[in-house]
Amino acid sequence: MQLDPLILGLLAVFVVLMIYTLLSFFTTRKQPAIPPKILTKIACISGNYSEVREFREGDYVGKEVGKCPKCGAPLLIVAVYSEIVRQGGKEASARS
């Protein structure tokens, strides 16, 4: 028996629509975003030392957090910011 071309055409349309629907269903799933790391930047008020460490509860900009290891002047928090650190990348905490 030979298939009716009409039936064949409708079948083709059906298959294309099915593939389209399934494709749009599978491609909408996103991978989970990497949570950003919150960092605190500390600097000496005389400007010769700074370091970046992880944010701790209670940190705020302008808070005094000890003495400068180089000159003994007060160390202040100068910034708190978030940064997305990719795994396998460089370590976020850096000294300068």
């Binding site: 950003p36 919150i38 960092l39 910034a79 708190v80 910011y81 978030s82 940064e83």
Partner: peptide, 8 residues
């Protein structure tokens, strides 16, 4: 939201 590095 928490200030990003770009904004800083």
């Amino acid at each position: 939201n928490t200030m990003t590095k770009k904004i800083y």
